[in-house]
Design a protein around this nucleic acid. Sequence first.
DNA 1: AGTAGATGGTCAAGCAGCTTGACTATATGA
DNA 2: TCATATAGTCAAGCTGCTTGACCATCTACT
Lengths: 148, 148
Amino acid sequence: MQNSEALGLTAALLAVAGELTQRIHDGVVARGFEGRPAYGFAFTRLAPDGATVTELARHLGVTKQGASQLVEELVAKGYVERRPHPRDARARLVVLTERGWACTRAAEEAAAEVVEGWSGALGGEAEVRALREQLARIAPCGPIRPAW
Amino acid sequence: MQNSEALGLTAALLAVAGELTQRIHDGVVARGFEGRPAYGFAFTRLAPDGATVTELARHLGVTKQGASQLVEELVAKGYVERRPHPRDARARLVVLTERGWACTRAAEEAAAEVVEGWSGALGGEAEVRALREQLARIAPCGPIRPAW
DNA sequence: AGTAGATGGTCAAGCAGCTTGACTATATGA
DNA sequence: TCATATAGTCAAGCTGCTTGACCATCTACT
């Protein structure tokens, strides 16, 4: 593998990632939600049972102050709410509201639309699944950098 | 393909893209260059024969003022220089300096290092090449959003 | 129990990197 | 030749993050 090929792979990967981000965002907006792409990253961490600001910060790869400001924004727009933490009086659990869940579903739909388009380019759904599995193998488990 | 699977693919793709961006940046810094990831995007457009500020802006998906500021930064750090455009007295051609080329090569090396690690996770270089080809098929030809 | 240090969260100020708006110089076409 | 479009820059403003300071609470050690 020559170095220039690695750069070609990098360019393709980042172009696809950028395009995907943009189109999911557009799709979410088209479904009546406002926001910026960073919301999506936050939602994936908050989705199951909520999370604290500090956990969210680690997930996003930003400071806890940055995460706190994002949560403030999400609260103002009605996507999440802060609740007292059941086992730690210092902490507050940030959980999705019904509207937050609806926005998450909208993002899923938008993502599915884009990915469906990839089926055509790649030859079928099996290829898309294969792509997903390959990416999952090399995906890091660390913090997600807000790359959109 | 269920919607949630599309979101899983999205998460994996963006995680890989973020990780790759970070590690290329780290590798470039380790080789003695300073800068931010956006430089890499610019270099890929400037590399062959240079480009005007407006062309660069379209490539990066930012305003021409934003691109102009980035070029100013690159000039100050010695990575590029502005030359009169051969056929348009309004325009100026931004071209890489020798240091700019050296930085590009450093980025290639860093990218190759990361991609080499993927060979292990995927089973071999053939799989990496296949991944690259799949991504190239679905990569957009439009402007690259500065996702790092 | 009492206390020192670690940790969760917020407020405030600052900064980087982008935007919009206004402007000049040059090109293009009726 | 003049009207309009385009390349580029300067200036000001905004957004989303950072660093620094601080309080409340938890944890562990004495």
